[in-house]
């Protein structure tokens, strides 16, 4: 059937995941041979339903699997051309890999300023921290206004800005975003979209994990679709936006206006598209 097109990656990939298999608790197989690449300067989107393994893939990349008793049992992850399977997160962040975790995960008891400074933990020079701080505040003026207030008292949108700002404090080369639009109003989702573009325009590559496929595909250079721990589709953002199956399963737009019951019955079967 639909053979996944081999994506052409122009530049040297900044992040390359090759054929990894991830197992939780030594028994639960979550990723079954996933490969993915992010080239320098790209925005890459990763789509998929709940439980497809998107967050697990991010954990495998950032070294957070350990916290969840997960293990990479096969395959390799390399960041900046160097194999990074066994690196701890601290080292990866220092080398330029930052992430915005799902559900924001800001330090609610700390002030906004302290949250930002915690993001710059790996940065040694004070000058670099100040520069990063200026850039973040430029991007999110609201964080400067509320610098001294407790982070937990910010609104949801402001907390998301804080989470992104915190990740940018380490001046990353690659930024991983796990569902930045989660729980935000449509207007704020738009804002997040512009922000991701801005960040990318300033030279940071972005790997964007999203359920809001319309938003993600509209800004992504390339995208991958995950299902059941496998990558089932990949292509450029425009290609996938135009794809009939993607439109139906992820954008909620059917080709025909009205679906018959028989179509609904075959939905499950069709969804196992490239298997």
């Amino acid at each position: 059937m639909n053979q996944p097109a081999v994506a052409t990656v122009a530049a040297e990939p900044i992040l390359a995941v090759q054929n990894i298999e991830v197992v939780y608790n030594d028994v639960i197989l979550v990723l079954r041979g996933v490969s993915l690449e992010v080239a320098e300067g790209e925005i890459v989107a990763l789509l998929g339903a709940n439980g497809a393994g998107k967050t697990t893939l991010l954990r495998a990349v950032t070294g957070l699997l350990e916290v969840h008793r997960g293990n990479i049992t096969k395959g390799t992850v390399s960041f900046l051309g160097r194999r990074s399977n066994l690196d701890d997160t601290s080292r990866l962040v220092r080398n330029g890999l930052s992430q915005v975790m799902e559900g924001r995960r800001i330090f609610a008891e700390l002030s906004v300023e302290e949250n930002l400074r915690s993001g710059a933990y790996t940065v040694r020079s004070r000058q670099a921290v100040n520069e990063a701080h200026d850039r973040v505040v430029d991007l999110f003026p609201v964080l400067a206004e509320r610098a001294r207030s407790t982070a937990g008292y910010l609104s949801g949108g402001e907390q998301q800005m804080l989470a992104i700002g915190r990740a940018l404090m380490a001046s990353p080369k690659l930024l991983l975003l796990d569902e930045p639009s989660l729980g935000l109003a449509p207007l704020l989702v738009q804002q997040v979209r512009y922000i991701i573009r801005d960040i990318n325009a300033q030279g940071t590559s972005v790997l964007l994990v999203e359920q809001n496929a319309a938003m993600a595909l509209s800004i992504a250079d390339r995208a991958y679709v995950m299902e059941n721990g496998r990558i089932v589709r990949d292509g450029t953002g425009a290609e996938l936006l135009a794809d009939a199956d993607i439109r139906e399963f992820y954008l909620g737009v059917g080709e025909t206006g009205h679906r018959s019951f028989r179509d609904v019955k075959t939905y499950r079967r069709r969804k196992r598209w490239s298997a």
Binding site: T62, L64, V67, D88, T89, S90, L92, V93, R94, S98, Q99, M101, R105, I106, F107, A108, E109, L110, E114, N115, R117, S118, G119, Y121, T122, R166, A170
Partner: peptide
């Protein structure tokens, strides 16, 4: 100090910031 408080509040998120 900030790192210690962050770790206390959310251990995984602190690790994600590169706090050792």
């Amino acid at each position: 100090g900030v790192a210690m408080r962050a770790t206390h509040f959310d251990h995984e998120a602190a690790v994600a910031q590169g706090i050792s």
